[in-house]
């Protein structure tokens, strides 16, 4: 992905924002679908951080002094 991946905390905060926007209830339907896709993308980003091994981090730690 061209955009630098959000850090875990950034993703979580954005997710919270979306939830509160939806909870607000004024969101009209077509933006809703956009928000929901964004939310699921953010969830995927967070899940990856939790579960998927990040080769880069592993490499960094391995060749530390």
């Amino acid at each position: 992905m061209a955009k630098k991946k959000e850090t875990y905390n950034e993703a979580i905060n954005q997710l919270r924002e979306i939830v509160s926007e939806i909870e607000g209830g004024e969101l009209d339907v077509d933006i809703l679908s956009e928000k929901v896709t964004e939310a699921s993308r953010l969830v995927k980003v967070c899940k990856e951080k939790l579960f998927k091994a990040d080769k880069e981090v592993q490499k960094i730690l391995e060749n530390l002094a």
Binding site: I12, L15, R16, I18, V19, I22, E23, G25, L27, V29, L32, V36, A39, V43, C46, K47, L50
Partner: peptide, 18 residues
Amino acid sequence: EMLITLQQQCSETTQALL
């Protein structure tokens, strides 16, 4: 767990809104 609750909240609120 927090992520899961957020996810649930997200789907629940969307459901409710729809």
